[in-house]
Structure formats: C-alpha cells, structure tokens
Design a protein around this nucleic acid. Structure first.
Lengths: 328, 328
DNA sequence: CTGTTAGCGCTTTCAA
DNA sequence: TTGAAAGCGCTAACAG
C-alpha cells in the first residue's frame, strides 16, 4: 500500500507521471476526463504521495519545529495544542520536541529540525544558550513566551506580572511578602522592585530548584522550606507558576494554614490547576500569543520580509479567585 | 547554513561525495586521514544531512507516528513523554498527532503518517473506525491503552478495572452505586457486572457526553446531574477518569457533601490530579506499557517476525487514597 | 493540455 | 580505500 508511486498511478490511469503530479497539486491545466481517471485510481488504490520526495524536491517541508521546555506544566500542553491547531489551519504540521530545560537537548532538537527541513522554528528557550547559534542559522524562528531582542519574539511582560502581583498584595494591606520560584527571574525582579518602591521588602524566598520539574520535586522543595521555618514571616506569597502555587496551597492546608485568611496566594499561568483550586493567577493569553506567533513566522517563511526583528510584549492580567481575594 | 550539501563538504575536504556519506554513516572503510578531514569540515561549517533525502533513499525515516485521542488528560501527556523518551533511546523520533476523539481526524493523521514515511504507528484508537483500514495498510502498528485483536495491542484490562472498583465498594459495605462516565465502556460493563453478581445494581449513571473533552465541559455535565437530582441515591461512585473524579469531588464539596464520609470516590488513570486531591484511583502502568509497545513495534519494523498478533492485557491495581478509604 | 526530462541530496552498488 | 554513477519519488521547466 505504502509502496505505491506516481509511476504506477500513471500507468493505471494511462497518463504520464507528470499529469498525476498535476492533478494531485491541483494544477488547472489537465483534461477533465484524465483528471477524473487519475483521481479514481488514486482513490481505489489509496495512494498517498511520498512526502520525503516532495520535501526534497520543493526544498521545503511544511513542517514547523516546536521545542518547549517541559510538558509537565499544563500551560505548555495548552500552548502546544493551540500551536498545532493554528499551524494546521495554515497547512503546516508541527514537529514537537521537549528540551526538558536542558540546553544541550535544546540544541539537539534544533539540529533535528534542520535535518528534517523544517520551514521554521518556534522555541520556548532555556536561557540564552542557543539564541546566538540559532540566529546564525538564518532559519525563520520565533521565540514564544519570552522576549529575545536578537530574534522575533512574543511573550508576556514577566517583570510587569511580578509588579501586578506585588501591587495587588500591597493594595490589600499586606506588609510581609513571600515568593516561590527559581531565581533570578523577571517575575521575581518585578515583584521585588514594586515592594521596594513601596517601602517594603521581600521577607521570604521559597526556593524551587531549577531541576524541580514536576509536582513531586516542587513539593519536596516547598516541604523543605516549611520544615526548616518555625513560623511563616509573610502574609502573602506570589508563585512563579500554578504548580508551585498549588503545592504551596497543599503544604499550607496540611499545616492548618488558611488560604486566604492567613496567607494570600497568587499563581502564574492561569492554567486549569488554578481554576480547579480557586487560586488567583496571572493570565497568559495563549491564543493571542499563538496566533501572532504563527502570523509572524509564516510571514518570514513565505514573504521573506524585512530583517527588522519583531518583539512583542503582552500585558499580564490578574485573575482574582478566592486565594487572594481578602482584604486585611 | 542549511543549504549545505554533501557535495560542498566533499569539495572542501577534497574527497568524493560518497566518502563524505561513508564517514557520516560510520562506514569503516575510509582512510583515517580523509575521515578526519571530512569531520573537521563538517564541524566547521555546521553541516547537517538532509533527512528528506536520506528517507527517500533509504525508504525509511526512523520516525514513529503517534496518535492519541486527547492531550487534555495528563495521563496522555505522561504517556507521550515516556513514548518519546523510549523511542529516542532506540534512535527514533516521534511524530505526534491528536485526533481529539474524531475518527476522521484520526484517519487523516494516519494518512499523514504514511505520507511522512513513518516506520511504524502507535495509536490510542477512537473506537473501531480505522482499525480495519489500518490493518490493510500493512504498516507496523501497535494499539496502546486498549486491546484490538486484529492488531498488536497492549492495554489495561478495563473490564477488570471496573470490577476492582465495584468489589472495593462492596467490600467496604456500600449498597448503592453510582458511575460517572461516557457509556458504553468496558469499565462500566465490568463495574455493573460485579454489582449484579453480588445482588446489587447500578443506581445512578452520571452521564458525561462523548464531546465533553475538557474540565469545563465535564464540569457542566456533572453540574447538570446534580441540578436535576433532588438527592443522591448512591454512597459510592466510580469515575471513568481522574478528571471526572475531580470534577465530581468539586461539585460535591460545593454542596457540602463529604468525601468519603457521605460518598466514596474512585477515579481512573492515577494521574497527578488524583495524587494532588487525594483521590483513590486505578493505576495504569505507563512505563511498562510504553516499553513493551516500543519493543513490539521495533521488532515488527526491524525483524519482520511472525504475523501472529500480540495482545497483552495488563492488570489494573487500585491505589487507595482518602477518597474511598472509609468502611461503612 | 500533456509528455519528456532534469535534478532535489543522499546511499549504495560497482569498478578501479 | 575510493570515485563514478544510478536512482529513491517527486516537481517543474520546457517543448510540443
């Protein structure tokens, strides 16, 4: 079945191979009778053109390489899903890789993309490691969820997100502040800066290791914090993502700490985890981000426009749920 | 960068293109000096062989097509992740598709796999729609998570899973039983059969529409049930997956129904959702399933062994957590 | 409107 | 150990 070629189809339909190619590619200038015959044969034998040959010949593949840093976080799953959908609408498939926060794996993925002749790359980057190399490759690329000057990019303003969380807490009357996440990080910086500006400081940092990439490991980090702290010196806490927020919530509940009465909590990503648990969270507009990403990328691929880099920063918004909706 | 070919490498290294191919493919019979020269050039210019050409020539791609029914359920995310890892260990990439429970999309994915010259297919099927067609295609395929006689398959014994849930409830002293899910389904059948065998019956079915493929839609279905029922006529309930279990839990809590004191709850898949929420759940051994799947598939691809179909049914185990650990 | 033909970049005989 | 050359299946320019 899968060993059929246009040659056989041509023979069966009594036309040349070129004509078969024409009807498959919707070329108008084919006799209607002949076209019908070809289509019938294709249908009957279930012929599907060999994409490797097409790619080789056309020197493009209609594939977009997507590399994310993790799939454990449901935020990325939703991102991937949306990316796939929007790409498909435009006639492209996604080749998905997961760098698992490892720059070496990320680079291998990029090489694999090149080998597979992808027409463009969408990357959730791990730091700066491969940005310059990627730039030299001169393949259409857009960085998503974060901003990088040297390439096209679209991301949320993380600094601003940190500020919004901080402002919200300050406005609600908090005086003592906590942060959960891996530092340094722009959210962390933004959060801290707004605290300082208002005469406060960050009282506690619950450090999540960079290598803690699943619920269980994050839970361990948070438990470790709770176990070494005699009492909590903050009344509100901002978590770098919803998984961390959720694990904090669980650890707190386990110890009889009430959310939000004792401690207000804000997460990040606004995934369904936050929705399920009623955790306030900073929303990332996935659909807008993805649509714009595809737009920019296909423009680069298909129109080869200006070399001016595009860098878009989306504004974060806080979705308030019960975990922080409590004035002191 | 990406327009380099072996020809240029050959010229730069002062050898023939064939020799370049030889060193890339680790062919022994190449002069050591020459090989070193070639490697150096490749390194310098960052050459990566064109995979489309390789695939065309070799008539295999080292790609496995994987098509799942959804990615919303974290169970499938974990499945995909493990699949990717195990495949990569064996030198294969994954081409991932999501049929979103649509047999037409599923068939399109399969056709895309053929077009892309995948060496094999791993499928989480939607019913029976494409099983026969797939069989005719004569491409190595293994069905995962479910069993299909006409193809290689590995899955949990869903019937048995339903029985285990039912038995657990009966053993704990329950007399009135509920089920949440889309019916008919093997888990449902197994559950019901064990109830009948013990002189009980299914008192309530909370029907989740087949089209309810995310939290929100499932929530609506469950809310709809609660809203039309004056009182619950069961004291225990088995949910077809953890998402449903979770949404039931939320809907119950909202109404002051205590889990497990008023109603015992068992979910299915044993995802982190169940772990997070302390929901008892029937465990699916992902890693074992995936390893066996890859084993069977690569055996078919690389060794073209017997045409005897392999059908493996794994035994389900119940992981008891607080949602059902309560004797009446 | 249609067939012939020349490659796309690679692997792999075959001879040397 | 090596190079020349054929050809994987397809597209597209060209000639008719």
């Amino acid at each position: 079945m899968s060993k059929l070629t246009m040659k056989e189809i041509a023979k069966l339909a009594n036309v040349s191979q070129a004509t078969v190619s024409r009807v498959i590619n919707g070329n108008k200038s084919v006799n209607e009778e002949a076209a019908k015959r070809v289509l019938k044969v294709i249908e009957e034998v279930g012929f599907i053109p060999n994409n490797a040959a097409q790619t080789l010949k056309r020197s493009h593949s209609n594939i977009i390489g997507v590399c994310v840093t993790e799939t454990f976080n449901p935020y990325f799953v939703e991102l991937i899903d949306t990316l796939e959908l929007e790409a498909r609408k435009r006639g492209y498939n996604i080749l998905l890789h997961n760098s698992k926060h490892n720059p070496i794996t990320e680079w291998e993925s990029i090489q694999n993309f090149i080998a597979r002749q992808v027409d463009g790359i969408i990357l959730v980057p791990n730091g700066e490691y491969n940005i310059q190399r990627l730039n030299k490759l001169a393949i259409p690329t857009v960085i998503i969820t974060k901003n990088r000057e040297s390439l096209d990019s679209i991301g949320l303003d993380h600094m601003q997100a940190g500020k919004i969380a901080g402002e919200n807490f300050i406005y609600a009357g908090h005086k003592k502040f906590g942060y959960i996440g891996t530092v340094p990080d722009e959210k962390y910086l933004g959060y801290k800066s707004v605290l300082y500006e208002n005469g406060f400081e960050l009282n506690s940092l619950i450090n999540v290791k960079q290598t803690s990439t699943n619920n269980f490991l994050i839970q361990q980090d948070i438990e470790a914090y709770f176990n070494q702290a005699d009492r909590l010196d903050f009344t509100c806490v901002f978590a770098a993502n919803d998984i961390m927020a959720l694990e904090f919530l669980k650890a707190a509940q386990k110890r009889g700490i009430r959310i939000p009465e004792d401690i207000s909590l804000i997460g990040f990503d606004d995934t369904y985890l936050a929705k399920i648990m009623g955790i306030s969270s900073i929303h990332q507009p996935i659909e807008e981000m993805v649509k714009t990403t595809i737009e920019i990328l296909l423009n680069r691929i298909e129109n080869e426009v200006s070399s001016e880099k595009i860098n878009i920063q989306l504004a974060p918004t806080l979705i308030e749920r019960k975990s922080s909706n409590f004035k002191r």
